[in-house]
Write a protein that binds this DNA or RNA. Structure first.
Lengths: 332, 332
DNA sequence: TTGTATGCGTTATCAT
DNA sequence: ATGATAACGCATACAA
C-alpha cells in the first residue's frame, strides 16, 4: 500500500505538504497539488483507514449484532442497515449471536475495544428468556451507544426502533372479526417467549375479548413437529375459521395443513401471518401478511444511531415503525 | 477508554512496563505484573484494537461481500463465515452488493484501504451477466487475497470454494430416471444466467441425454409471474412426471401449482429442488432437496482464506463441497 | 527488572 | 507556500 511518506519521498517534499495537498488545503499551491494528486492517482494511493481511525478516534464503523439472518426479517433489516451505513460512509461489523446469550456477550465484549463507534442489536432469544442484560448495560455505561431494535429490553433506556407489535395484531384480529365476520380465530406462534411475541399475543387477546370471542392460542415455540401439531389442532377444532400466525413460518404451515384436511382457504379459513414478499410467494393460496417494514427499520436504526454519535447531548428516543396489513385476495 | 498511558501514570511506572506486564513478559517481576493486572481489571482496560492494527499492520478482519442475505443459501453461508471467523479471532465486515456490479465495485474499493486483510465474496448477478471482473483482479493485483465461493469467475485464479453444481444435478436427474423411472423430467430455474445455474442445467442435460430422454428447460429468471408460468406449463404438458428446480424457490411453487391442477405429488409428479431445512418445512407435501452444505462452505472459506493470509508461499486451491440429496419421502 | 525511544500512517499545530 | 514536529495507542528493540 502506498503511503504519504512514499509519495513525499518520490516528490521530494514533506509528508505534511502531501497530506495537505491531498486534502485540498488552501495552504498549498495549485502546481504542487497537481503534482501530488497525479502521482497519488498513478500509484493508486488511498489513505490508510486504520491510521485515520487512530488519529481521529472514530472508527466510522457500527457493530451489528443479530440473532440470525436465517430469519428473513433480520435478513431484510440487515439489508437496510448495510444500505444506510454505506450511504453514510460507515462500515458494519456483523456478529451473529445464533440466539445464544454467551455469544452475544462475547461479541459485545470483543467489539467494545475501540472497534466500533456504536452498536445496533436485537437481543438473542436466550437473553430474553433468561432476562439477562447486564452485558448490555455494561457497554452503555462505558459510553458506547447501543440502539436496540425489534427485540428490545424494556428495562434498558437507550435508542430503540420497534414494530407496532401489539397494534398490528390487534388491527389484524379486528379486521377478521369486523370485516370478515370470523368467529373462531386461532393464534399460532413459535415465538411466544420473545418480547415481541408476548406483545402480539396481547394484541390478539384484547381484540377477541372486546368482541366477546374466545381466545385460542397454540404455542409451538418448543415443539418438535409443528406440522403435526397444527394438523391435529385443526382436525379437532373444525370451528376455527381464521388463523393469525405471529411469526413467518407457522402461517404457511397452517395453510398447508388446512388444505390437507380439506378446508378451503380463504373461504373456510382465513389466514394472516407475519412476513415479506417471499412469504407470499411460497404459499398457495397466498397468505395475507402483516408486513413489517424491515428495510425501513434497518435504515431508521442507522440514522438514529449516527445522529446519536454526532450529537453532543443526544436525547434517547424510541421510534415505532408501523406495519402494513397486506391482504392476499379478498375473501368472504 | 482506559489506555496504557493512563495505567502507567496511575502506577507511576512506564508505559512499556505496563505493556509488557499485560502481555505476561518474563522481563517483568511478579509483583509488578500483579499490580498492573489488578488495576487493568479494575479499570476494565482493553487494548485498543485500532492501535494494535496499525502497529502490526494486520486488521484481523475479513471483508465479506455477498449479493444478498435474503437468499437462505447466502444467509447460511454467512453464518458459517461468522462462526469460523469468530473462532479464529477475526471480525467480518459485511457488504451486500444487492446483485449490483457497481455496489460490488464500490465495496471492494472502499475496503481495500487497509480495512481488511482479505476478502470472501460471491459475485453479483450483474457482474456475472455482464462478465465484468476487472474490479476483482485489481484487488488481487494489489496483493489483497480474495476467496470466491459459489458464484465464481472461472477466468480469475484465486482460492475458491464451490458446490458440485454439475454433479449434484446430474445425480439427482439420474436418480429420477433410474430409481423412479421418470420419463419426462422438467427443469425449472430462475438462475439460468448465473455460473452455477449454467452448470446445473448442463448436469441435467447430460443425464437426460444419456438416457435418451427429452430435455425440457423452463427459464424464469426474467419472468414476472413465476407462478402463472409454471402453472400454464404444467397444464399444457401433462406428460411431465418429475421436476428439478435448480433454485430454492421454483420447486416449492411447482409443488403448489401441481396440486392446484390436481396432480398428486410425489406419485404423479416427483419434485426435487435446491434448499435447506426451511425449504422442506414450507412445502407440503415435502419437497426433496439437493442440500448444499452452506454452513460448511462458509467455514471452509474462512479456513482457506486464513491459511492463505498466514502462509508465505500459499498455493491457490479450489475446494469442492459435495451436496447431499435429501429425499422427502419414498415415492413410487 | 524497568525505562527510553522509535515507528506504524495520518492529521494538525506551529514554525519557517 | 512548505516543512518540521507531535500526537493518537500500542509494541518492541535497545539502553540502563
Amino acid at each position: 500500500m502506498t503511503t504519504l511518506k512514499e509519495l513525499a519521498k518520490l516528490l521530494n517534499i514533506s509528508v505534511s505538504t502531501v497530506s495537505k495537498a491531498l486534502n485540498d488545503s488552501h495552504e498549498i499551491s495549485a502546481s504542487t497539488k497537481k503534482r501530488v494528486i497525479e502521482l497519488a492517482e498513478k500509484l493508486n494511493y488511498k489513505p490508510n483507514r486504520i491510521a485515520q481511525q487512530l488519529k481521529t478516534n472514530k472508527t466510522k464503523t457500527i457493530g451489528v449484532i443479530l440473532p440470525t439472518v436465517k430469519n428473513p426479517f433480520f435478513a431484510q433489516v440487515l439489508h437496510g442497515i448495510e444500505k444506510s451505513a454505506t450511504d453514510n460512509k460507515y462500515d458494519i461489523i456483523v456478529c451473529l449471536s445464533d440466539e445464544s446469550l454467551e455469544k452475544e456477550e462475547r461479541s459485545l465484549e470483543l467489539l467494545s475495544n475501540g472497534s466500533v463507534d456504536g452498536f445496533i442489536m436485537a437481543v438473542a432469544r436466550e437473553s430474553q428468556v433468561k432476562e439477562q442484560s447486564e452485558h448490555i448495560t455494561g457497554i452503555i455505561d462505558s459510553r458506547i451507544p447501543i440502539l436496540m431494535f425489534d427485540r428490545v429490553v424494556n428495562e434498558i433506556i437507550c435508542d430503540k426502533v420497534v414494530v407496532d407489535d401489539f397494534q398490528s395484531v390487534y388491527d389484524a384480529t379486528e379486521y377478521l372479526i369486523k370485516k370478515e365476520n370470523r368467529k373462531h380465530i386461532l393464534l399460532v406462534s413459535n415465538i411466544e417467549e420473545l418480547s415481541v411475541g408476548k406483545l402480539r399475543i396481547k394484541g390478539y387477546q384484547k381484540a377477541v375479548e372486546e368482541s366477546g370471542l374466545d381466545s385460542n392460542v397454540l404455542k409451538l415455540g418448543n415443539v418438535d413437529d409443528v406440522e403435526a401439531n397444527i394438523h391435529n389442532y385443526l382436525k379437532a377444532h373444525k370451528e376455527i375459521d381464521a388463523i393469525i400466525s405471529i411469526d413467518h413460518i407457522t402461517g404457511i404451515i397452517a395453510i398447508n395443513m388446512a388444505k390437507k384436511i380439506g378446508r378451503i382457504v380463504p373461504k373456510d379459513l382465513s389466514v394472516i401471518g407475519f412476513g415479506y414478499e417471499h412469504t407470499q410467494l411460497l404459499s398457495s393460496p397466498k397468505i395475507s401478511i402483516i408486513h413489517q417494514k424491515a428495510l425501513e427499520i434497518g435504515k431508521m436504526a442507522v440514522k438514529l444511531l449516527i445522529k446519536h454519535l454526532n450529537t453532543e447531548d443526544h436525547e434517547l428516543q424510541t421510534i415505532v415503525v408501523p406495519s402494513e396489513l397486506k391482504l392476499a385476495e379478498s375473501t368472504k
